[in-house]
Every structure is written in C-alpha cells, then in structure tokens.
Computed example of a mutant assay.
Amino acid sequence: MSVNATSLFGSAATTGTDNRKNKDLGQADFLRLMTEQLKNQDPLKPLASNEFLGQLAQFSTVQGIQSLNGAFSALAAAVEGDQALKAAALVGQQVQVESDRFQLGAEGGLAAAIDVPGAGKVTVEILDASGAVVHRSETLANGAGTLDIEWDGTLADGSRAPAGEYRIAARVSAGASTVALAPLLEARVDSVSLSPSGLQLNLAGVGAVPLSAVHRIGASPRT
C-alpha cells in the first residue's frame, strides 16, 4: 500500500485542529509521517526520489510562507502602533484637510484656504443643508497661490446663522473659463480612532477623516 505523506500531513493537521486547538502540526510530526510512508510503501512500487523530494519541498514552502506571514503581521502591527502614537500627538492641534462640509456651532465660524491655480475672480459660497446660499464672497486673485477664507458665521443682515451642517463651494473664473476649487478646512483634532481602514482623526466641526487627508499641521498664518 502506498501512503502519501502530504495527504497524511493534511489529514493529521485537521485532526490535530479538532482535538488540540491552537496546536499546529510541526516539522517533527511531518518527518514521522514521512517515515511511516517509507515503511508502508508498496515494495513493487517504491516512492520515486523526485516525488519524495517534492513532498519535502512542499512542506518547506508551507513552513516558509507561514513564517513570512507571521513576520509581516508583526511588522504591520508595529507600524500601526507607531502611527497611532504619532497621531495621538496631534490631539489638540490644528490641521488642514480637504473637505467641503463642516458643522457650524453656536459660536465661531469657518477658517479655510483654497489653492488658486492662476489669476481670476475667486467666488466662495457657503450653503446650508437645503442648498441655499447664506454667504458669498468674491476676491480677485493676481496669480497662482493660496487664498485664505474666513467666515464669522453671520448672515448678510448681521444675524447669526443657525447651528448645523454647511457646505463650502469655491470656483475661479478667468474669461469664459470657470474651474471648481477644493477647499481646505482648518479644524482642531479632538481624538484619534483606530479603524479597519486605518487611522482616523476626529476633527471638531468636520468629523472623521483619514490621517492621509491631512495637508498641513498647525493653523494657517493669517494677517
């Protein structure tokens, strides 16, 4: 009777998992199964040397992949832990992230910036949850650069805008060409969260954003 060590290896691994949880079939077990294969092989059809070496190679490959996976898992955990420690230092700091939505509270307003690609008229609008424009400003940009935007949260009649979610839209017009611009909002980091998708910064008035969305750390210098 011919016995295949690879088959025995898989069968024994399954049995070992059922009877002894968290205990993997190791190298000594595999060698024992290989010895049993040699003892029980058909004398008229002995195991060919290339088949024997192939089974050994399969075991070595599996062992190598398992070790590599373990090493990568440990490395990923170490990197995530290092990022979490660094991100924790951002709590309480001002950061700048790309977002067009923000929450207006009972006090305060909006601080943002826009990267203008060239000269033209820059129009910035603040829209409420229904899409109505509650504030509009226009500025002439002389060339490419960063334009700072501030809104104190008041309406045209001087009254305070209701607290809630608002959206900011910006565009630059030059001649017949109009290009939409992505606002960069400034907000305080309240906390840091670990999620399956990676590190998330919880920003006051903005919400959760990935760490990779941060364009700048620290408040923008304003005149």
Score class of each variant (00 low, 15 high):
111 A>G: 09
211 L>C: 02
69 N>F: 09
122 V>L: 08
150 E>G: 04
188 R>T: 15
59 F>L: 09
201 L>Y: 08
133 V>L: 07
53 L>K: 14
23 K>I: 13
208 A>P: 08
133 V>E: 09
128 D>K: 01
38 L>Y: 11
216 R>D: 07
130 S>P: 01
30 F>G: 00
98 E>G: 14
16 G>V: 03
191 S>Y: 02
206 V>Q: 02
140 L>K: 14
18 D>Y: 13
161 A>V: 10
212 S>P: 00
37 Q>E: 14
7 S>R: 15
122 V>H: 06
202 N>S: 10
65 I>L: 07
31 L>T: 09
46 P>A: 12
107 E>M: 04
105 G>T: 08
14 T>Q: 04
198 G>P: 04
82 D>W: 10
219 A>S: 13
152 D>W: 06
132 A>R: 14
172 V>P: 01
75 L>T: 09
181 L>Y: 08
33 L>A: 02
61 T>F: 11
31 L>E: 12
78 A>L: 05
39 K>V: 15
190 D>P: 02
175 G>R: 13
21 K>W: 04
137 S>F: 01
176 A>H: 06
198 G>F: 03
20 R>E: 03
151 W>N: 03
43 P>S: 09
99 S>L: 01
168 I>R: 01
115 D>N: 09
108 G>M: 04
38 L>P: 05
56 L>E: 07
161 A>M: 08
156 A>M: 12
201 L>I: 08
120 G>T: 04
131 G>D: 12
90 L>K: 06
33 L>Q: 03
3 V>G: 04
206 V>E: 01
189 V>N: 03
206 V>G: 03
114 I>S: 00
119 A>I: 04
144 A>E: 14
3 V>S: 10
42 D>F: 09
182 A>W: 02
88 A>W: 02
187 A>T: 11
116 V>D: 01
215 H>D: 13
197 S>F: 09
67 S>T: 13
155 L>M: 13
12 A>I: 05
10 G>F: 12
93 Q>L: 06
3 V>C: 04
83 Q>C: 10
93 Q>E: 13
13 A>H: 05
189 V>R: 02
148 D>V: 07
194 L>A: 14
203 L>H: 07
195 S>W: 03
190 D>E: 14
109 G>C: 11
206 V>N: 02
44 L>Q: 06
218 G>I: 07
22 N>I: 00
41 Q>Y: 06
93 Q>V: 01
5 A>M: 12
177 S>V: 15
30 F>M: 01
144 A>D: 04
33 L>C: 02
103 Q>H: 15
34 M>A: 15
208 A>T: 11
195 S>R: 10
130 S>E: 14
79 V>N: 06
193 S>R: 15
95 V>S: 05
18 D>L: 15
4 N>R: 06
184 L>Q: 11
66 Q>Y: 00
104 L>F: 05
77 A>F: 00
